[in-house]
Design a binder for these strands. Structure first.
Lengths: 342, 342
DNA sequence: CCTTGCAATGACAACGCTATCATTGCACTG
DNA sequence: CAGTGCAATGATAGCGTTGTCATTGCAAGG
């Protein structure tokens, strides 16, 4: 005779398939099939079972289901930040792509910390996701190895400047920085300043910066003044750092910003300080945020398409859930927005 | 002799506890204990097992673990939107509260749609979360029933104007609307306009609106002009609707906005149209977003503390993971920010 | 009336881990 | 040196589903 130990003394009185099956006078299998809409079921049976489901308030346990079917229906998403609006925008694209699918996203935030990213990825993989969508291509070796060995689809989004583990969806930030330089040079600017944030932690901002500098150098130009700060982007920092730059440097014609938040702050400084934009000082951002377009003078910037990046990343997975032999890259591009500040 | 069917022909060659145990010459139990840091383990054994873990690249399967321990370590989070920056801010607070815990958040978005919320909640509960943090107190009956019957902690955040299922953490939006009215009346304004979004879908914006109107009415005043729009908040809408309102209404002294996004748009309109703020037209927002503070004139508004709301919501759960007998309310308050636009 | 074929349902072993109880071995104690 | 206590480890039955195979019952066909 079996021991029948009480596994957990305070067992939650959870309703299980068996409870439903008993009430509806069918087997567990039938209930399971009905809940999953899978296989042939007589109408009468379906009705009877659904009544039992409602009567008992049965909610299938996806944890057990995932274990049994070896399919969690989860898509892991790793982003560096929630306070930088671009990532919620990507998440919207991801959710849009996932809508109508039976898959669900699980989001983790790394705070731009690669060690934290490693922890976060390990925890994510423990949930046996069908794919991982992760921002950027810069990871610790251990992270990269885990992602690679998982065998599932790994979509690295936002940037395509580095060789991906599996697939990269985004834009070239080096190219974007270079394009900004060429555009501004073509518009006659020669004396450049730079205002940025994130120091070394925001790799993509850094790549744009590098692209900008390199292209300026090729034209015999340079950044005559820069003000960088640590931590998160903010309009406030953009404002303060622009004030700082104006105080320090003479004769700067145009300031390039790491992104639109900072640039908006720059414009606010100019408005408050009575600096005429773009005549006295021109401003150029990056991202093409909505707010930039609504400013009294539309912000000159480069538009990236975050929503599309998220959506496209999901599509890649949905179109081929199995990792292909060779890595690939999808360039979602970018677009210079003329605006009125540069 | 057992049948030993091959469950899944294409079995992923996953590494399991047993593989690790075999390599390290210990039992499954010991590996499990080591992975969970639970129970007494000899140093030598721990080292040997961890080596095996590394050698095999073992990642514990939390789905199996959750099923066995009947604890998913998940906290479900339901929010209406990602594009309204306030919700990512709450998420940050939630993540902050969860940091250092072994719990993980799972986020679902409803797009301000109560039917979608019902689906989303059902899917969330299927993952057997230890708690659900959900924005707002307005749900379908079915949603409310599911949440209630789950027996787990249900923290409704953002608003405390309705009786909660279990616990509500946030502020009274009716009171905030009323406070705005009193503040502006005290500052001498008599002729009010309103610019809002979300129609009926953003219940909290609606409550602020109601609080405002009621209090104005008590003072014998009313909203002389209003412009409402559907869908998501945006600076652009605030700008356009303010232009609209200015074109339509004469003699309005102050415009109250459903929130800061819209108000910032309003200020941009005034800047572009040469309307002097607050002399010709005063503006008053809601939320206390960072950007409002950095404007050339700081936006007059009411600060709510989204980060704190998220953090507090998590704390409630962590402090008592079991649902108490009686519902409760935690008022995180709000604060009028004088600013320079009203 | 006996096959065939198929729609409908049932039985039961996985899935990978952990809670529980059982066992081992060794340092002390008296 | 038997007895005691405890640190360390092992064995195993679930956890609630689902995939697979088996079975049932009934209509159609000869």
């Amino acid at each position: 005779m079996a021991k029948q130990r009480q596994r957990l003394s305070d067992r939650k009185s959870k309703v299980t398939v068996s409870d439903v099956a008993r009430l509806a006078q069918v087997s567990d299998s039938t209930v399971s099939r009905i809940m999953r809409n899978h296989g042939l079921i007589a109408d009468a049976t379906r009705t009877r079972v659904m009544e039992a489901v409602r009567a008992l308030g049965y909610v299938p346990n996806r944890i057990a289901g995932s274990l049994a079917s070896l399919d969690s229906r989860l898509v892991g998403v790793v982003i560096p930040s929630l306070s930088n609006i671009v990532f919620p925008e990507v998440l919207q694209g991801i959710n849009a792509g996932l809508a109508g699918t039976n898959r669900q996203s699980v989001i983790s935030v790394t705070d731009y910390d690669l060690d934290k990213e490693e922890v976060v990825v390990r925890n994510l993989l423990a949930w046996q996701p069908a794919a991982v969508l992760i921002a950027g291509s810069t990871h610790t070796d251990a992270t990269r190895k885990m992602l690679d060995q998982s065998g599932i689809r790994i979509i690295e989004f936002m940037e395509i400047d580095h060789p991906p583990i599996d697939m990269a969806v985004g834009l070239s930030h080096v190219a974007a920085g270079a394009a900004a330089a060429r555009h501004l040079i073509a518009r006659g600017y020669r004396r450049f300043g730079y205002v940025g944030y994130g120091g070394t932690s925001d790799v993509r901002a850094r790549m744009r910066y590098d692209g900008l500098r390199t292209t300026l150098a090729q034209a015999g130009l340079s950044l005559e003044a820069e003000v960088m700060s640590d931590g998160q982007t903010s309009v406030g920092k953009g404002k303060a750092q622009t004030a700082d730059l104006c105080a320090r440097a003479r004769g700067i014609e145009v300031v390039v910003y790491s992104n639109d938040d900072m640039a908006v702050g720059g414009l606010f400084h100019c408005l408050a300080a009575g600096i005429r934009v773009p005549d006295e000082l021109a401003l150029f951002g990056f991202n093409g945020l909505d707010i930039g377009r609504e400013l009294p003078q539309p912000l000159s910037t480069i538009r990236s398409n975050r929503f599309k990046i998220g959506q496209r990343a999901v599509e890649v997975f949905l179109e081929s859930p199995i990792r292909p032999d060779a890595p690939g890259i999808i360039d979602t591009g970018f677009e210079i927005f003329q605006g009125a500040t540069a």
